[in-house]
Design a protein around this nucleic acid. Structure first.
Lengths: 197, 197
DNA sequence: GTAAATACTTAAGCTACCTTAATTATTTAA
DNA sequence: TTAAATAATTAAGGTAGCTTAAGTATTTAC
């Protein structure tokens, strides 16, 4: 856990600098949680009232449609924040699932504790404001890609941005992130390989 | 302009309550700007250092790809905030265009003024933090739709959410928001009309 | 270590959506 | 008020990506 604390404080200090006292207050609200491979953080229909910082492991955030198909909204690994902003902002049950794909260790803070801490430490609210700006930029880029690029182009973009994940999650999951079937992604990969020789 | 000030203060007071002094400080940083129909707020390649609140009118935020096709990322009308978060967060030239589709009146604040105001009024930083959470929720929903719905379903969703825009922007623009060609949207509409009779 | 489960590949046929192009309707501008 | 520009409709033919299905490879669990 010590190691996790250092990681989360370093993560924050990239954007804002907290005093020792502020760090201690924030850390006092954190809870350490471990998930086994395939275990769920959150199931569709539940209320999300927590924000998680991943110390170790990898999680997927996905939506399951009426036909039972999953669509990958986001993934997160070490040093990333993950939570269901829609559910906790609007106080509605989540439509998402969050699942560990590996043994995953997180530091978690409850929504109400976070709000208390924001009162005491405005700099921390700034940190999350900036984090949200980055997330908006990222989501907007994904929408631009989905509107203007072919599946092959989106896959190449995925590789550039998230190449280190290519061997950590399955092709089925990558396909569901890109919005294509795994079969079609298999063909895309084959074509890319043959044209690179 | 008086009217615009009231609108922006009301908009903020839905989420946080400012004292008279805080309101005055914030208002002192605002600049009133008018755009003619078709005029641009922002062109691809420029740096975006401002946030705009629309008092009256309607603007489109779009990306133009290498083939010259436009893709609608966002639209905004009275009582909405609009800006290029990606460009101003990362200090990179924008890849977006923001254009008035009608005569449009805005109140504008510069990025550096906003940051000054955040120091003085943490509540205002909270306001924007919450606004960003809503935007993340909205963008995420759009990604879910683009991954899991057909064009017809996305059009029906557009109508539910933004129906009041259907007669304010062109079908070309709606199509580019949905990620289909205007011709195909025309067919979707025809089918919907014939099946509703 | 082996059986069962899951993931990946390949290919044939299909469909949602695109392209092109011609026609009509609506808006814009002088 | 009218010509020119832009938007919307319709339809024929085309393609990216889907479906189904069968075979192979890899991973999981006992």
């Amino acid at each position: 856990m010590q190691q996790g604390i250092q990681l989360i404080l370093d993560n924050i200090s990239k954007i804002v600098s907290l005093t020792k006292e502020e760090q201690d207050l924030f850390v006092s609200k954190l809870q350490y949680v471990e998930y086994k491979k395939k275990e769920f953080f959150l199931h569709e229909g539940q209320f999300s009232n927590e924000l998680n910082f991943i110390i170790e492991g990898c999680v997927l955030v996905f939506y399951t449609d009426q036909s039972g198909f999953s669509h990958l909204i986001q993934f997160a690994i070490e040093d990333w924040w993950v939570g269901d902003i829609a559910s906790s902002t609007h106080n509605i049950p989540t439509q998402l699932n969050i699942q560990a794909v590996e043994k995953t260790k997180v530091l978690r803070i409850k929504k109400e504790d976070l709000e208390t801490v924001f009162e005491a430490i405005p700099k921390l609210e700034r940190f999350f404001r900036i984090l949200l700006q980055k997330r908006v930029a990222n989501l907007q880029q994904r929408i631009i890609s989905s509107l203007s690029k072919t599946a092959t182009e989106r896959f190449l973009e995925f590789r550039e941005q998230y190449g280190y994940l290519e061997n950590r999650i399955t092709q089925i999951q990558i396909a569901s992130f890109l919005g294509v079937t795994p079969e079609f992604l298999s063909m895309i990969r084959r074509k890319l390989n043959s044209s690179n020789k």
